[in-house]
Computed example of a mutant assay.
Amino acid sequence: MTAAPEAIGNSQRTGQLRLNWREGQVQLLGHALLRRHCPCSQCRAFRLRGMNPLVSPDIRVLEVNPQGYGVQLVFSDQHERGIYPWAYLQALRQEPE
């Protein structure tokens, strides 16, 4: 099981979530990337059918709510169903623009 990061930062201005992991690794994840990879059952089913969700590049994470094994993110499009496990976040890589 992946441990929680030591610190989490959320920048509305840059549209990035910053995770400071224990090993000294800093991970920056764009809000649009996080929304496209939402792990909720509805979004997973959408992706399993081969559909890519349309996500505005202007989407923002409004709230970051730690849930023990991960974090719930509340997005500016009102989507808030996904809880992102720490290991899932650590495995995500920022996509090229």
Rank of each mutant, 00 (worst) to 15 (best):
M1G: 14
A3L: 11
E6L: 14
A7E: 14
N10T: 04
N10P: 12
S11C: 10
R13H: 14
T14C: 03
R18I: 03
N20Q: 14
N20V: 14
R22M: 11
R22D: 14
E23Y: 01
G24F: 02
Q25D: 10
V26R: 03
Q27N: 05
L28C: 09
G30K: 12
G30A: 15
G30R: 15
A32Y: 01
L33N: 09
R36S: 04
R36I: 03
C40A: 06
S41Y: 10
S41E: 15
C43L: 06
C43M: 07
C43R: 01
A45E: 13
R47K: 13
R49P: 01
G50E: 11
P53G: 00
V55Q: 00
S56G: 11
P57V: 08
D58E: 13
R60V: 10
V61M: 06
V61G: 04
L62Y: 04
V64R: 00
N65S: 12
Q67F: 05
G68H: 05
G68Y: 08
V71Y: 04
Q72S: 12
L73Q: 01
V74I: 13
S76N: 03
S76F: 07
R81N: 08
R81Q: 12
R81F: 00
G82Q: 01
G82Y: 06
Y88Q: 05
L89T: 04
L92Q: 12
L92F: 03
L92N: 06
R93G: 06
P96R: 12
